[in-house]
Simulated assay, not measured.
Amino acid sequence: MSVDPATAALELELQRLTAGALSPLARYGHVALLLAATLMSVLLAALLATEPALPGRTQTALAVLLAIGVSWIAYATWVLRQRRPLLGHHRIVAGRMAVVFTGVFFAGALALGASTGSATYHAAASVGASLLVLAFGTLMQAHWRVAALQRQRRELQRQIGPAA
Rank of each mutant, 00 (worst) to 15 (best):
R27Q: 15
G113M: 04
V146W: 02
A148Y: 09
G69N: 01
L14R: 12
G117I: 05
G137A: 06
L12K: 14
V146K: 02
G69S: 00
L48D: 02
A8H: 06
A36K: 12
A45I: 03
V127R: 03
F136M: 09
L14N: 04
A36Y: 10
G69D: 00
E11A: 12
E155Q: 15
H143T: 07
Y121A: 05
S2R: 09
L112P: 09
A26M: 11
A142L: 04
L17A: 14
G128H: 12
V31S: 03
R151E: 14
S126C: 15
P24L: 13
G161L: 11
A74P: 04
E51K: 13
L25V: 13
Q152T: 12
A19H: 08
V99W: 03
A37D: 01
A163I: 13
M40Q: 15
Q15G: 08
G103F: 05
A63Y: 02
L54C: 05
T120D: 10
A123K: 09
L14Y: 08
A21I: 04
Q157W: 10
L139D: 00
D4S: 13
Q157F: 12
A49I: 04
L87Y: 00
L132R: 00
R16I: 09
L131Y: 05
V70T: 04
A119M: 06
L44I: 10
T138P: 02
T102M: 00
T38V: 11
S23K: 13
V99S: 05
S130D: 05
G161F: 12
T18A: 07
G95F: 01
A148H: 11
M1W: 06
A98E: 09
A125E: 09
T50Y: 10
A32C: 08
L48Y: 02
A67L: 05
A21W: 03
A32F: 10
G108T: 08
A125R: 07
R154D: 14
T77S: 00
L12I: 11
A164R: 14
L87E: 03
L34N: 02
P5C: 06
L156M: 10
A148S: 12
G103Y: 06
A37W: 00
A61M: 11
A46V: 07
T116A: 06
H30T: 03
L139E: 03
L54F: 08
H90M: 08
V93A: 14
W78T: 01
W78Q: 00
W144D: 06
V99G: 05
M140Q: 07
R145W: 07
Q141I: 03
R151N: 12
V42W: 12
L39F: 12
A74V: 14
P24G: 07
A129K: 07
R151K: 12
G95K: 03
V146C: 01
T50K: 11
L80E: 00
A37F: 00
